[in-house]
Simulated scan of single mutants.
Amino acid sequence: MTREGAGMPRKPVRGGMLWALVFCLCGVVSLAETGERKPRRQAAAEPPPIESVLLMEAETGAILYAKDIHKQRAPASMVKMMVMLIVMEKVRAGELHLSDIITASAHASKMGGSQIYLREGETFTLEELMKAIAIGSANDACVAVAEHISGTVEGFLDLMNERAKALNLRDSHFATVHGLPPSNGGPGDLTSAHDMALLARELIKYPEILLWGSIKEDSLRDGKFVLTNTNKLVYHFSGVDGIKTGFHRDAGFNVTATAQRDGWRLIAVVMGAPSSTVRFDEAKRLLAMGFNGFRKVVLARKDAPVGPEIVVSGSTIRKIRAVAQDDLSVVVKKGMEKQLVLDVQVPATLPAPAHRGQEIGEVRVKQHEQTLAKTAAIVPEEIPKVGLMWRLFGRVSR
């Protein structure tokens, strides 16, 4: 006898009625669970709220996927990409050397956020500080480098904004060298996914950037300070070798990532993700979509012959074939490669003289009569004009 029924007589219950009651209750429970689970599946399928994303093929600049790519957002530490670009351009120009010694100022030693905890008067090579920026996103290293190059952070900011203008980064304005939010209520850094992709295209021209960007872990101060790469994609996506993450509360979670597979390179930008996990998952999704769903097709190589033979008049050289001024490649969805046509427009004859590199026509890649890419058709060599004696003796092909 149960406690609820103690002291009270129990009426007999037939077995059939008892089983019917059990089945009814199970059916109600089952329907209730089904009704709850369905909206849960719908909620799980909704994409995470991300402000802007972009996927670009690095060589051609072809945009393969885009969402609000010109929306201005705070880049946070992705600002450091411009710092790294200016440094590497000056290194290539011979104005700086990676072996240069940089001394930390009092100002550099007082930076907050991610840092290597520079002490005033402490010295590092430029290469060591660049690793600290590229791998560990060190704010104090950015300040030390900026002061070394321009004397003041303000002077270096002028360089950053001048370079942004030269690169046609129309959505960008840099207010800091590190990406921290303004502490005095003033204007902060602004950029867009589009501008970050363009900046990345410039930055990947420097092998050192990709080398540092691919390092998972390094160290400074004779191994006493460990640098851990903030870009976790280097651990989880094959081919990733850069470039920069960024985060603060107002910016959300950002990343500009690049990866190379099978001889071609993609750039993915994610801005304003709600978490670090979402940021990296979206970047992986974009890169995987690009490598799995598209194909880069090279239809002409720089200095390779294109088009029919051209008859040359007035020279000892009788015939030439034009060559492509640049590589000519396009990115298309897989399965569409056979739709591409190489259209070469050059003259049937060419009078001498003509000079190496002289434009004489155009090479186009077409798909259903739409031009996808083009480059110039140029003269491959010097073509001298002969004198009257050659003409009189018929030694020139007419």
Rank of each mutant, 00 (worst) to 15 (best):
R318G: 11
V332F: 09
V298Q: 03
V278P: 09
V278N: 08
T230E: 01
W264L: 04
Y235W: 15
S329T: 14
V346F: 09
A304Q: 12
V240W: 06
F291W: 11
P347C: 14
V332I: 09
T256Y: 04
G335I: 05
F247E: 07
R295C: 12
F280E: 10
V234F: 01
S276Q: 11
K244E: 06
G290D: 10
I267V: 02
M336L: 14
R265D: 05
G335C: 11
P347N: 14
A257F: 00
R295Y: 12
T277S: 12
L328C: 03
A304G: 04
T245H: 06
G293L: 06
G293T: 02
V278C: 01
N229H: 08
R265K: 12
N292T: 11
E282M: 10
G246P: 04
I320S: 03
Q345F: 14
Q339I: 10
G335E: 03
D343H: 14
G290L: 10
A304I: 00
T230V: 00
V331W: 13
K333N: 05
T245C: 05
I310H: 13
V240C: 07
F247S: 01
K284F: 13
Q339N: 13
D281Q: 15
L227E: 02
V240A: 02
I267Q: 00
G293D: 06
A324Q: 01
S313Y: 15
V234W: 03
A348L: 12
D343G: 05
P347V: 15
G314Y: 11
L266G: 10
T228Q: 12
S275Y: 09
Q339D: 15
S275P: 03
G293N: 06
K284Q: 15
L299H: 07
T277V: 13
V269R: 03
A251N: 04
A288K: 14
L342I: 14
G307Q: 00
N231P: 00
L340H: 05
G314S: 12
V306W: 10
R295S: 13
T349I: 14
A300Q: 11
L286C: 04
Y235G: 06
A304N: 05
E282F: 04
V341A: 05
N229T: 03
G290A: 12
S329I: 12
T245R: 02
D241H: 08
T277P: 03
M289T: 13
L287S: 06
V311T: 15
I320D: 06
S313D: 13
Q260H: 12
A273E: 03
L340F: 08
A348C: 02
D262P: 10
I243R: 01
V330S: 05
G242H: 07
F237Q: 05
D281K: 15
Q260L: 15
A257D: 01
I243A: 09
V297K: 09
L340I: 08
I310F: 11
M289Y: 15
A288S: 14
D326R: 10
A259Q: 11
K338Q: 09
R321H: 06
S329E: 15
G239F: 09
T245N: 06
Y235C: 11
M336Y: 12
A288E: 15
F253C: 02
D327P: 10
L287Y: 11
R321E: 03
F280M: 10
S275D: 08
A324S: 08
V330C: 07
